[in-house]
Design a protein around this nucleic acid. Structure first.
Lengths: 226, 226
DNA sequence: TAGCGATATTAGGGGCGACGAACTTTTATT
DNA sequence: AATAAAAGTTCGTCGCCCCTAATATCGCTA
């Protein structure tokens, strides 16, 4: 499976661009090592691919400095992101997938689906705007509405907030655990207490008291209640 | 996209095995040139792949003689065939795809779908037993019910029959035309007249008179009415 | 049975996408 | 500023899957 109708980018290329898009959004420019980490690929392999992508005009590369998507590269990244998130939505809404298992499936299907399929899926479930983890879905035209969100681990104690989004690129078991705690998009949450030195935090989640460690808390993105 | 959870065969490998399965079913053993034709790949490439597949125990190869699937090879071929046909069904029944466009989409998705996804799709549309073109769907356990069917081009004049299946690996425009003629699975058909030297045939399709050439007629598989 | 055409294979090569080992550049530390 | 650590790159290699050109084998017909 290498070619897809229309625009023939390979699956690895789409994966790189998607990863770079997300790193860039968080850090401004994507470092080789971050790309390597995220894709679980050795750094030299990343150097090689980066060269190829730069040759194709999908990104700009400043030696030893990092990487930045071109408009074309960003377009493809957003298209892939849309595919991924529409698929995630469809799997949960139409096929009853649990939210902790949609990621891996979407990760493969996003490279094999035609635009028509994605559009039909989106239509079938009513043109969703966020995926099951709360991530916004780019439009067909490649527009995305990225809200600046605080992580739960940086939320001030006693401030009311609600969960907007949960990171979905970690492993499924964490997601399942977060769901058990009620930490899913839409939940109302408040930090009641917090141990020092990046210690565990005590939360109120929709009324129930919960205890959560810093690495899990970092996965949960919230918006302060207005 | 190279690996899938569970059993990691590549997309090309699955394509070869599927093609070989189908050729074998029609001709007993699969010749190199037939495989090459069907996959639109140069014959030497087929020789190379055949060697690899034989090394992996997926088929047996008698030099200059052709190829035969092992049980393991057949198992994978049937699994892929099941994927393909379940996907075709799902796309038509759940997403409103027209029957002439499901083949290409399924051809890509079959390599990217997990067993769970295929099962959920099959369940969602009521465990179908044939795909939109009338081809039987192997069960989860790899059993398939292949009926011996006559082609419309070999049907004796004035014999009542019904269309059971239509070949789907040709191009979409032919399929669309067949549908216009009413030559879809389930249709009642009779040859009323036939020009000699492999000429066009006159048909009655569900009461209407139709004219059809030999290459199209060969795509239509029928069963004589009992 | 000798030769010819069809079919299959070997030989050699290329792009992609990954790797480890060795080296260079940048950054942080003292 | 010297140097150690971290980050990035180059180099050589490999497996997969494809190609063309050249060669070998099969099977049929004369």
């Amino acid at each position: 499976m290498t070619a897809r109708p229309g625009e023939g980018y390979t699956a690895p290329v789409e994966d790189y661009l998607k990863a770079i898009y997300e790193i860039e959004r968080a850090s401004g420019a994507a470092a080789n090592s971050e790309i390597a980490d995220r894709l679980a690929i050795a750094p030299p392999s990343v150097s090689g691919m980066v060269r190829r992508l730069a040759d194709q005009g999908l990104l700009e590369h400043e030696r030893y400095r990092g990487v930045r998507l071109t408009n074309e590269g960003r377009r493809i990244a957003l298209r892939t992101l849309r595919r991924h998130r529409v698929i995630e939505c469809y799997l949960t809404r139409a096929l009853g997938y649990p939210w902790d298992r949609v990621h891996d499936e979407a990760e493969r299907l996003e490279h094999a689906s035609s635009d028509e399929l994605i559009d039909r899926m989106a239509t079938a479930i009513g043109e969703p705007t966020v995926d099951p983890h709360g991530a916004p879905i780019p439009t067909r035209e490649g527009l995305i509405e990225e809200r600046a969100l605080a992580s739960l681990s940086e939320l001030e104690p006693l401030t009311m907030a609600h969960v907007v989004r949960v990171s979905d690129d970690d492993d499924a078991s964490r997601l399942r655990y977060l769901a058990e705690l009620g930490l899913v998009p839409g939940a109302r949450v408040m930090v009641t207490d917090r141990a020092p030195f990046d210690g565990p935090m005590v939360l109120r989640v929709d009324g129930a008291e919960r205890l959560v460690g810093p690495n899990l808390a970092a996965m949960v993105l919230v918006e302060r209640a207005g």
